[in-house]
Design a protein around this nucleic acid. Sequence first.
DNA 1: ATGGAGTTCTGTATCGGTACAGAAGAACCG
DNA 2: CGGTTCTTCTGTACCGATACAGAACTCCAT
Lengths: 360, 360
Amino acid sequence: MADTSREPVRVTLATLARELGVSRATVSNAYNRPDQLSAALRTKILRRARELSFAGPDPLARGLRRGRVGTVGLLLDEPLSYAFSDPAARALLDGLAHSLQEDGLALTLFASQPSGLDATPVRGAAVDGWVVQSLPIDHPFVTAALERGQPLVVLDQPALPGAPLVGIDDLAGAQLATEHLLALGHERLAVLAFKLRGDGHRGAVSPGRLEAITYEVTRRRYQGVIAGLAAYGRDPDELLVVETPHNDVDSAAAVAAELLGRDDRPSAVVCFSDQLALGVLTAARAAHLRVPTDLSVTGFDDTAEAALADPPLTTVAQPLHDRGAQVGGLLRALIRGESVSSPALGAVALTVRRSTAPPQ
Amino acid sequence: MADTSREPVRVTLATLARELGVSRATVSNAYNRPDQLSAALRTKILRRARELSFAGPDPLARGLRRGRVGTVGLLLDEPLSYAFSDPAARALLDGLAHSLQEDGLALTLFASQPSGLDATPVRGAAVDGWVVQSLPIDHPFVTAALERGQPLVVLDQPALPGAPLVGIDDLAGAQLATEHLLALGHERLAVLAFKLRGDGHRGAVSPGRLEAITYEVTRRRYQGVIAGLAAYGRDPDELLVVETPHNDVDSAAAVAAELLGRDDRPSAVVCFSDQLALGVLTAARAAHLRVPTDLSVTGFDDTAEAALADPPLTTVAQPLHDRGAQVGGLLRALIRGESVSSPALGAVALTVRRSTAPPQ
DNA sequence: ATGGAGTTCTGTATCGGTACAGAAGAACCG
DNA sequence: CGGTTCTTCTGTACCGATACAGAACTCCAT
């Protein structure tokens, strides 16, 4: 015996086998292949297991032998408190978890920390596959996960060669919202965007910054707005773009407060998420601006809270739960060894409610 | 050879060892004990590993041998979308994740599904320990996790023999809020509580139901309110208790709308969370009641959004992030093999803001 | 009685690592 | 120069299970 640690003696399949005078294989079969042994022996084994408080085959050993652990790693771009503050993210996650559960797979979280990001946990984690949720392409997690050579599915971004991506037509969505506002007669539009890059910038965005957007979703939505303006023959340079470092109501409210305080205040704001739009509503209320009379606002995602907002939000709808489930389905297929390719982009549609109206 | 599967040949430590003419142990040491071999050989090994796109020792096999996987299971009472809708829960979780990360531990989620709850994933998961977050004592997850005989820490509830519990003085907290309102002169109090039991009940609560509260936190906070009333010589039977099945703003708003529509409308509502209190604010606004002029409202948790609410909430503060970290610390100690006991209950204090005032 | 099909159980190779004891040689020291 | 100490590397037992081939036995039809 090489090891000398003296723990309270673990109960294993072997212990049970010895106790009952059967082979290890039979005890294993009692758990995994009930048809391989008589019902009587099986009950006997399970009873004795309970007596010895043996909780079943060790998941790690089983995993090693079978080549599967039963969990999937989820890579997140932010600390947990932020990552789940967006109801849209939660809906996606819910769909994902639901789908994974059909194969008994759990979700293991890997959240980015603002300071000193360390990918070692990703490198050493026991998982059967990965979901990359909206990361920038140069994120350390992405590299680490790719190196593992395991099944991997991307949710929204970044596009990765060889990995299926589940996304929506962001450009079309943003264009829909933009053209809706232009059709209403708005002249002065602003965009409230979430992260263009991972540097924590907030507030007005310079033209240079717009050239170097590293978050693909942000870039596509921005392009959608430009396309909408172009369709109406407007000059893209008139567009005012402001950025929040976090996709949540409070950050948005702060940034929106500045935006609405400007002399050249816009008459309509295209927001890249419902959370951001809710923030604009808050800021508008604080500034005694009436929505939609003084200000039109559009959201993106069509979360439950968009419909419940005051006023209810006009927003770009996307199938959140279903897309989450789609990611799960693809990943499960990959884990089963099937080969899959990226599905068509999810459909978007404009849900018109009462946060938009012609300018006064 | 028993197995006959023909996969693209995996690269393992052995492959590398063979290639380079060294022993498996040395390759292992290159990863885990750099001091056990010359720097030159180590670089050579790592370089060749990269060439063969070997991502490092298999986490499962390493886990089996070492007796540790590097992840901790988190047991949740609700689907993910609900579990993380409360900022207080997210703050706790953040603290937990932060602490776990110091030992390179990740979090694996096990969320309850409303229908057909199945504890098999919990039984078969490869984790080093468990965090039980606010479950009822008879929840299948709890039983399953306990059977595993692994390190386990309880967050808030249920009290479990032998498992350390990290909680706060719920009773004192609720009593503080209650006495604050009574001191202001309120005569007619209502309580807006989250789940008393797991049966999805919503709305007014019968006296019988109050006798059989299965969620310990809810029970203690309720008792705190009763204690507050008693301290002011009030009859507990006058208290109006309403319940939401979900701890979120929208459910709360719906239930509160009914409450505020009653003939015997209360002049103050003690809410068991900030989320619930925010729901009351929403309902009050919809009913054209002014807070605090027509209605006083107290929250519980002192989340960031409590301070940003309109009006800012008077609420019972508790150290959310720290408590999460505390859970992590205890669990890490248990995993290291140390024995720990439940720490003292976390301190609570009343943060008085502008959602409470004397009745009109 | 014979052969074939089921049923029930066993033996052993294997999954991919890590821990530990110790071998071999270099370096040091008085 | 003999002995001690380092450094660097190896051999092997072991972690706890599962897959597979096949043994032993029963049962049944011919």
